[in-house]
Simulated scan of single mutants.
Amino acid sequence: MKRIVKEMCAGGDRQKFCEAYLRTMDPERAAAKAGCRDGFSALSRKSVQEQLEKMREAASGQLKREDVLRRLAQLAFGRVNDAIRLALHEGTYDPDELDLSAVAEFKATDKGLEVKFVDRVRALEALYSLLGDGAGDGAVDFFQALEDAGNE
Rank of each mutant, 00 (worst) to 15 (best):
F117M: 05
A123T: 05
D82V: 00
L130I: 12
D110W: 08
E114V: 09
E90R: 03
G132F: 09
A104P: 01
G134P: 00
L69D: 11
V140Y: 08
E90S: 07
G78M: 02
N81C: 07
D141Q: 08
A73S: 08
A135Y: 00
I84V: 04
L86Q: 04
V140K: 10
Q62K: 15
S60T: 02
G136N: 00
R79T: 08
L72Q: 06
A135D: 06
G112N: 07
L98W: 07
L124G: 14
F142S: 02
D110V: 11
L72H: 03
V140N: 04
Q62P: 05
D82E: 00
D99F: 08
R65N: 06
T109G: 09
L75R: 04
A59I: 11
D96Q: 15
K111A: 14
V121R: 15
P95N: 04
G136D: 03
F142T: 04
N81F: 13
D110K: 08
R79W: 04
E66A: 04
I84F: 01
L98G: 03
D67M: 10
G78F: 02
K107Y: 03
A73M: 11
K107F: 06
E66Q: 10
V118S: 06
R71I: 12
R85D: 14
Q74P: 05
D141H: 06
G78R: 06
A76H: 02
G132H: 09
T109M: 12
A126E: 15
K107T: 10
V80I: 10
R120S: 05
A102I: 00
L127D: 06
A123C: 04
E105K: 12
Q74T: 14
L72C: 01
V140F: 07
E66I: 12
G136I: 01
Y93G: 08
A123Y: 09
Y128T: 12
E97M: 14
L98F: 06
Q74K: 09
